[in-house]
Design a binder for these strands. Structure first.
Lengths: 346, 346
DNA sequence: TTGTATGCGTTATCAC
DNA sequence: GTGATAACGCATACAA
């Protein structure tokens, strides 16, 4: 079965080899033979197509059908984010399964390049657009209106466009539940409102705690945001106390912050998770898994967001109207070593 | 200047509006008006095209010209590598500048998916292929032979395909020079042959040192590879000695190894860079910049590799024969805090 | 200098 | 059941 890449075969070639008409070939290969074609010719056509390694010329097809089976993916910064690859990979993979090809254009967060991307994709006659963001955010100006568009990891203010985003409150609640299940009652959080996800996570977290008659001590980061350093300082404040006033568990809004908290605990001579449990969020590659102890955290569903967004778009292009404007995806827990029960003495 | 995305205009529309022929339109828009078209009609055509926001239908064009202006990029794992985004972004950006659109397919390192990708791209009638690897490596089986192909961050055994890779020996030499320039003479290296880049870097490093009558103490990693843990143990061996037998600088084959070395120094009560300088390699995102002290290292030219590979391919598609089969790119130093001069007492 | 005609490979309509 | 035939939008050889 040698691969020959010489000159691609045409439908006419297939028809000739099969002793049939182009019409028959087209019908068979597109599954439109509604009893229009005999089983015998059908078989011959299939065999001929296989033999010639035939695949229809996408240009010709798009000329006729007005569809390119191309999807444009516009991202901000996502190409240089540690999570980004997974989202893109999920989107690309699902595109393949549905007969589409995904082309990615990274805007680097610059609006002018987003517009440029949209125009380029329009020139290319893409069938639809996916607009993906590195961090969860609300998006106001979506370029390239007029093309079917789905938002991934971002959402439109007015829900004008379908979007798929992580269910942050649910993840916060799951985080609370995890700590409650381990028996913790004296719980602190290090949080912040630098990005939109922070408050949402926190809301779900405190709500679930409240369900169990518990209220966390809240340390709110007001700095520029999310750094290891800030986590270190915040955790030092929370932990540098007599044992009975010290939280037995800290939920950190971010793995970076959690890394700082781990450092702070070590600096104070506290063992994690024996003296205090530390729970992160994000499952940031190369960080969470390599800390000592390895960080228990929650993984944002980046790959799944890419997949679902593409699936939504493919459905829409197939004429299926989306059941809901917004898809919420769970962030599964990643159990590692930084969370255990509270100290026996408490 | 409202954006109207209704029905794309055709060349005929432009011709009608300009009061000219389709031929003239085609000539003007493709720069083929070799004195075939009057300046007046030329101006009218340009104005009409602008007015209608005209862009030629790529399907129709590809049908006619047998070129899709599409480039397929096949990667292994690259979508989930921290460096990957930069390479892809560089390739994608340069593709845009040259009138191409890059579509990425991640094989996840699995050969069957590489073949699948090549076939999909062939079906799509891409004009050429870029084959990009996450880590520098020799590549044996390139699928989709028959299409113009350029290798990025990998190379073919027989140099059958043009490739663009980092100049590892030169980078090693630059690392040596950096330490020499700071006045170091008692130098150690932590290296290994787990990936092909290691020995190449090391070779350049020792050669440059030899030029200055210097020979490093070599600690060769024989373990599975590249981890922080291994770096820690290796550096402990090198540093846990009386001062006069201790190297004043260590060149680590990898940032991960350097991170371990930093830890080891801290554990031994040695200050970096006051007591010992640590030099890394890779400029691994989220790691090198966030270590304490921030790591001085070398940045692999991922973006540039993507750009150059795409440029090479575009040249080749334009009929320019590549000047050399292999392009070597430098890895610039990233000066941070972990390298200084040797202690004054030495 | 401009216009006309043809073919690229498909799909789909419509007589046969 | 099957086989001509038109049309999609563009580039270009050739006629005017």
């Amino acid at each position: 079965m040698a691969q020959h890449f010489e000159k691609p075969a045409t439908a006419q070639d297939v028809a000739d080899l099969a002793g049939a008409s182009r019409t028959a070939v087209s019908f068979v290969l597109n599954g439109k033979e509604h009893g229009n074609v005999s089983a015998a010719t059908r078989a011959r056509i299939l065999a001929a197509a296989e033999e010639l390694n035939y695949s229809p010329h996408p240009g010709a097809r798009s000329l006729r059908t007005q569809r390119t089976h191309l999807i444009g993916v516009i991202t901000d910064q996502i190409a240089s984010s540690p999570f980004a690859g997974r989202l893109l990979d999920g989107a690309s993979q699902l595109a393949g399964e549905r007969g589409y090809l995904a082309a990615v254009f990274d805007s680097g967060g610059r609006v002018d390049r987003e517009l440029e991307a949209a125009q380029e994709f329009r020139r290319r006659r893409v069938d639809g657009l996916i607009y993906a963001s590195m961090g969860l955010r609300e998006v106001t100006e979506i370029p390239a209106v007029g093309l079917p568009t789905v938002l991934a990891n971002c959402f439109a203010s007015d829900d004008a466009l379908p979007s798929v985003i992580p269910d942050e409150p649910a993840a916060g609640a799951a985080a609370a539940q995890l700590l409650l299940d381990h028996g913790h009652r004296q719980i602190a959080t290090i949080t912040g409102d630098i990005v939109i996800a922070g408050p949402w996570r926190h809301e779900g977290f405190t709500a679930r705690l409240a369900d169990h008659g518990c209220a966390p001590e809240v340390f709110s980061l007001k700095q520029r945001g999310w750094t290891i350093d800030e986590g270190f300082r915040a955790a030092t404040t929370l932990l540098d106390r007599p044992e009975r006033h010290r939280p037995t568990a800290i939920f950190c809004v971010t793995d970076r912050v959690a890394a700082g908290a781990l450092l702070a605990a070590a600096r104070l001579g506290l063992s994690v998770p024996l003296d205090v449990s530390i729970l992160g969020f994000d499952d940031q590659e190369e960080l969470a898994a390599n800390l000592v102890p390895a960080l228990t955290t929650f993984a944002l569903p980046h790959r799944e967001m890419g997949q679902r967004a593409m699936a939504l778009l493919a459905d829409q292009l197939a004429g299926v109207t989306p059941s809901s404007a917004q898809v919420l995806l769970p962030s599964p827990a990643v159990h590692r070593e930084s969370v255990a029960g509270p100290p026996a003495t408490r």
